[in-house]
């Protein structure tokens, strides 16, 4: 047995695979939260993105690459459309961000629009036609240890690395990024500086939704290329992505690390079972959820100590005349 078939390498390679949807969704949520809007609808937006992405691959015929790009565009647009509802309710109508986000997850999720959409178009009965294949980058896929982890992944993975870098540079090194942070920390001051708070919030919530949609499409086009009715496709990844943003102290680079940590936990059950470990699977399946709680507890106690925290205006609607 080569080293690349060992449990550790398999889990690490799968960690990158399973971590990628988390990374997209978490980066999207991070952008929205940095602008001061908490969106708890990630789970719903992801599932709807997964459904629409899958539908596009079914209804467009052609070579893999253009069809898959189109599918991602479709997933992004559908995620953004869902986010637009949340943006309108919370930014324009000043509704509670928490309740609106929960409503979005119920509306778009496995018992709502995604199921409706999937059933109306009979997605579950359609066979897979296009999916993201792993690329053998520079012919290094057979490299011991690093090969399967870094060089044998799909284009979605490499694009997510570029995206992480872009988001980090955008937030930390550009004028717009500075404005976003101002809007999230002190909207009244930002407003006084002439920054359009409403516009910034809308844009970032929509982009966040688009990225959640792409994250969902990672499931239906790459990890489990298929569509099932119900919740089981995304299965809580949206909620883990929200936790990930807290874990990452609202910083994109740490999101990348955290995504692979949780991706590894999601990959562990099937890898262990393949290696003949006989722990009841339910305990293994609970692992990512339990670990999310553990990580959150550790982070929230240290957050308090180090005075690192959420954007100050997170969750608070901005009303010019009531500041």
């Amino acid at each position: 047995m080569s080293v690349n078939d060992s449990l550790v390498v398999v889990v690490l390679a799968q960690a990158v695979l399973y971590g990628t949807p988390l990374l997209y969704a978490a980066l999207g949520e991070l952008l929205a939260e940095r602008s001061g809007v908490l969106n708890l609808g990630v789970e719903g937006m992801m599932l709807f993105g997964a459904a629409v992405g899958y539908w596009v691959t079914q209804s467009v015929h052609g070579a893999d690459a253009p069809v898959l790009v189109l599918a991602l565009v479709g997933a992004a647009l559908s995620g953004a459309a869902m986010a637009a509802i949340h943006a309108f309710l919370t930014i324009t109508l000043r509704a509670s961000q928490i309740v609106s986000g929960l409503a979005l997850t119920i509306f778009a999720g496995g018992l709502g629009l995604s199921a409706y959409f999937g059933a109306e178009l009979d997605l579950a009965s359609l066979p897979v036609t296009h999916q993201f294949a792993s690329l053998d980058v520079l012919g290094l896929a057979d490299l011991p240890v690093l090969g399967p982890i870094l060089f044998d992944q799909s284009a979605l993975v490499y694009a997510s690395w570029v995206l992480t870098l872009l988001v980090a540079v955008y937030l930390g090194r550009t004028r717009w990024g500075l404005n976003v942070r101002a809007v999230g920390e002190a909207p009244a001051s930002a407003d006084a500086m002439g920054i359009n708070v409403t516009r910034y919030r809308y844009i970032h919530v929509l982009v966040g939704g688009a990225l959640a949609g792409i994250g969902g499409a990672c499931f239906s086009l790459s990890i489990i290329p298929n569509w099932f009715a119900g919740d089981s496709l995304v299965n809580g990844a949206g909620w883990i992505a929200i936790a990930l943003v807290i874990f990452a102290f609202w910083r994109p680079g740490i999101c990348l690390v955290g995504a692979y940590l949780f991706g590894g936990l999601s990959a562990l059950p099937s890898a262990l079972q393949a290696h003949g470990v006989t722990i009841p699977p339910e305990f293994l399946y609970s692992l990512p959820y339990v670990m999310t709680i553990v990580v959150l507890v550790v982070v929230s106690t240290s957050l308090a100590k180090r005075r690192l925290g959420a954007p100050a205006a997170l969750g608070i609607p901005y009303v010019r005349e009531e500041r």
């Binding site: 000043r94 509704a95 309740v99 999720g109 018992l111």
Partner: peptide, 22 residues
């Protein structure tokens, strides 16, 4: 009767209630 209709309805009802809160 399309599946998912009940969830969609619940979501829309809640969205409308949130909007109405204003």
């Amino acid at each position: 009767f399309p599946s998912g209709l009940v969830g969609v309805m619940q979501g829309i009802i809640l969205f409308c209630a949130l909007g109405g809160e204003l």
